[in-house]
Amino acid sequence: MVKRILATAAAAATALGLMAVPAEAASPVQIYRVYFDSPGKDTRSNTSLNGEWVQLYNRTTKTRQLKGVKLRDKTGYTYTFGWFQLKGRKSVYVHTGRGPNNATHRYWGRKAYVWNNTGDTAYLLYPNGKLADYCSWTSKGSSKYC
Rank of each mutant, 00 (worst) to 15 (best):
residue 1 M to F: 11
residue 1 M to A: 13
residue 1 M to D: 14
residue 2 V to D: 15
residue 4 R to W: 10
residue 4 R to I: 11
residue 5 I to H: 12
residue 5 I to G: 09
residue 7 A to V: 08
residue 7 A to L: 13
residue 8 T to V: 00
residue 9 A to N: 03
residue 9 A to L: 09
residue 12 A to T: 05
residue 13 A to N: 01
residue 14 T to H: 11
residue 14 T to S: 05
residue 14 T to P: 00
residue 15 A to P: 00
residue 15 A to T: 07
residue 16 L to R: 05
residue 17 G to P: 00
residue 18 L to M: 10
residue 20 A to D: 06
residue 21 V to T: 07
residue 21 V to R: 02
residue 23 A to Q: 12
residue 24 E to H: 15
residue 25 A to L: 13
residue 26 A to H: 07
residue 31 I to A: 07
residue 31 I to K: 07
residue 32 Y to S: 12
residue 33 R to G: 12
residue 34 V to G: 03
residue 34 V to T: 15
residue 37 D to E: 15
residue 39 P to F: 15
residue 39 P to I: 13
residue 40 G to L: 13
residue 41 K to Q: 09
residue 41 K to Y: 06
residue 42 D to F: 14
residue 45 S to T: 15
residue 46 N to F: 06
residue 47 T to Y: 15
residue 49 L to N: 01
residue 50 N to C: 05
residue 51 G to Y: 01
residue 54 V to Y: 13
residue 55 Q to S: 12
residue 55 Q to V: 10
residue 57 Y to N: 13
residue 58 N to V: 03
residue 60 T to H: 06
residue 60 T to Y: 11
residue 60 T to N: 11
residue 60 T to P: 04
residue 61 T to G: 11
residue 61 T to C: 02
residue 61 T to P: 00
residue 63 T to F: 05
residue 64 R to G: 02
residue 66 L to A: 02
residue 66 L to K: 04
residue 69 V to F: 07
residue 70 K to Q: 14
residue 70 K to R: 14
residue 72 R to M: 13
residue 73 D to G: 01
residue 75 T to K: 07
residue 75 T to I: 12
residue 76 G to R: 01
residue 76 G to Y: 03
residue 77 Y to V: 03
residue 77 Y to T: 08
residue 77 Y to C: 00
residue 78 T to A: 08
residue 78 T to M: 08
residue 78 T to I: 10
residue 81 F to N: 00
residue 85 Q to K: 14
residue 85 Q to I: 04
residue 87 K to E: 08
residue 87 K to M: 04
residue 88 G to S: 10
residue 89 R to F: 03
residue 92 V to H: 08
residue 93 Y to C: 05
residue 96 T to C: 13
residue 98 R to A: 04
residue 98 R to H: 07
residue 99 G to E: 00
residue 101 N to P: 06
residue 104 T to I: 14
residue 110 R to Q: 02
residue 111 K to L: 09
residue 115 W to Y: 09
residue 115 W to C: 06
residue 116 N to E: 11
residue 116 N to G: 01
residue 116 N to W: 05
residue 117 N to G: 03
residue 119 G to L: 10
residue 120 D to V: 02
residue 120 D to I: 03
residue 121 T to W: 13
residue 121 T to F: 10
residue 122 A to T: 03
residue 124 L to I: 10
residue 125 L to Q: 06
residue 125 L to H: 01
residue 128 N to D: 13
residue 129 G to Q: 03
residue 130 K to C: 02
residue 130 K to V: 04
residue 131 L to N: 05
residue 131 L to K: 09
residue 133 D to E: 09
residue 134 Y to C: 12
residue 134 Y to M: 15
residue 135 C to H: 07
residue 135 C to N: 14
residue 138 T to L: 11
residue 140 K to C: 09
residue 142 S to T: 14
residue 142 S to M: 09
residue 142 S to C: 10
residue 143 S to D: 05
residue 143 S to Y: 06
residue 145 Y to I: 10
residue 145 Y to F: 10
